[in-house]
Design a protein around this nucleic acid. Sequence first.
DNA 1: TTGTGTAGCGAAAACGTTTTCGTGTTAAAA
DNA 2: TTTTAACACGAAAACGTTTTCGCTACACAA
Lengths: 350, 350
Amino acid sequence: MKRKVTLKQIAKELDVSISTVSKALRNSIEISEDTRQKVQAFAKLYNYRPNNIALSLKNRKTKTIGIIIPEIVHHFFSKVITGIELVANKRGYNVIVGLSNESFDKEVINMQMLANGSIDGFILSISKETLQQQDYHHFTETINQGMPIVMFDRVVNEIPCDKVIVDDVKGAKKAVEKLISNGCKNIAIITTKDYVSVGKLRTQGYLEAFEEHKLHPKASLILKIEDKLLSDDHLDALEKEIEQLFKSNKSIDGIFAVNELYAVTAIKVARKLGLEIPESLQVISFTDGVLSKHSTPSLTTVRQHGQQIGEKAADLLINRLELDETEEEEEEIYETVVIETDLIERESTK
Amino acid sequence: MKRKVTLKQIAKELDVSISTVSKALRNSIEISEDTRQKVQAFAKLYNYRPNNIALSLKNRKTKTIGIIIPEIVHHFFSKVITGIELVANKRGYNVIVGLSNESFDKEVINMQMLANGSIDGFILSISKETLQQQDYHHFTETINQGMPIVMFDRVVNEIPCDKVIVDDVKGAKKAVEKLISNGCKNIAIITTKDYVSVGKLRTQGYLEAFEEHKLHPKASLILKIEDKLLSDDHLDALEKEIEQLFKSNKSIDGIFAVNELYAVTAIKVARKLGLEIPESLQVISFTDGVLSKHSTPSLTTVRQHGQQIGEKAADLLINRLELDETEEEEEEIYETVVIETDLIERESTK
DNA sequence: TTGTGTAGCGAAAACGTTTTCGTGTTAAAA
DNA sequence: TTTTAACACGAAAACGTTTTCGCTACACAA
């Protein structure tokens, strides 16, 4: 087992100085053709590669991006990572991933671990617990130390940074309007509690669609699910809540669900109660994941373009990193990019 | 925007040497109570954190693990990452992710980028293209340079390293035996071409189950799908192939599919052809993902315990890393851990 | 007085680079 | 022959740590 070869070793073997080796490898004109060839041949033979860590230390930048997301077993977040990774690699950056598991503490710890020189900047989506506690000091501290952050999807306005978001309100509105124009008279929404920012916004879109069509939303048609029920362990409880919704509102003929799981569960319950999809009940879900595409009936969904979000976020971050290099201390002006949603029509609507 | 504070700056402010500051912060007894307090107070005030990169350079280890997987938008791989991340963090390591996108070149490039000092070791699952080309030089080179690798799921025996695998043969066999004992007489398998190692092994399990029950596998019941058809763009082609399978074998009453997508597609096609699940056709799928659980009917599956695989892989790697520290150059003896599968019974079987 | 021990601190090396600034050698110009 | 310029290379600093070793000053014993 041979250790990785360094400049020093090459220098010693060839009986030249470290500087000469370094310059020879970088094709400096200072070095004679002769020694250059010799050094390069030797380096190739021993498969020399500059040590990244040493470079990072010297250049005071790591060419690495830190990602903090609430969870990774999640179609949307995976897609975002794919997008980030794609442009990061293309632009010469690596990607390091931290999971918060929706926990405030883990989010803080993870950020601290990475912020001490390991990375040049963050791309993150805020954990639910953090959103609930509204404690954002770790974000502001990081930014104050000169490390840029780009937030996506779950963001808060208080933090001065670039953001990439989905137009949740508009996307939800489009979905509900689709249901309306498809003839639904009693459209329910299955959403999350309000502290989840995207849930709140999608609920808002639902309400706006009603307003625009001079309809009056009935409180009993708005089901706000406690977050815990998203986990697989609480599937039963989720089904019960949805069943209750149907039973106390017999005339429901449209469902807008803020995620796939709520949608497929609603369909499952509805079928049990004897409703036909899409004849007597039409369903639209937010988030276009694997369930939407492959379950039966396939779901009409609001597609979020997760990969595109990731790509945009990475571009924003890297732009800022490479801009900081040149013009230090320009007026900090932050951008919020909105990625439009599409409505993908499938079998769960007429 | 204040830069991160360093030992040097603290030393200058307090008019002591860098060594003194370093020692004071690490509670060395060499330093007087007085200066220790002073330094620690100052450090706390300015929120001093040692620079990770400098530490990595000095210690010649990064406390970071590199993961290379074929794709991340995939339930199984996400689960594995969750597991790796869990134990890595618990043991003080970070995780850096590279995606090969099933491409040989990207796998090689990614490994080269990370191997130059950025990480201490790899956990990886081999891309399909690499498996097809059977070119493993980048693995052996990495290992020869003293960087340990742990492979999971898609592994090859030629490479001397620790491995964590699913017992694909046994899992598949259990699934097929379940179908047999449930009364199926004509069991087909939908699998991949043989160069995908796990596909091949699962096919082998299918054959072994037949053998053990003195049954004779019919070639026409074995459908080996060309890999490209896994992508969403080729869904139609996939459906056609499966439809063909049913049409030329009217008596099929059991399907074993090596992944979820094949399973749900088979169900879709079967229904179109008028078959009832599970009454006239029973289906079992490998991989317990979100589709299995939430599609209708839910799928009976062979669960792979992805998270557990990740945890085990991380433990193996870190053990080796921290063992290398102490006893250099012991006899290299590698472990292959087999994670047992479970059969989860759901609605797609009787 | 001299020697010994110890408390408290600093200098410097090391990790592996890159880059600036010398410096010596040689060939060409004066 | 002397000056100059180009050429080819090396020394050293810097990035931020940790750690070994040495040094100074002082207290105490002989």
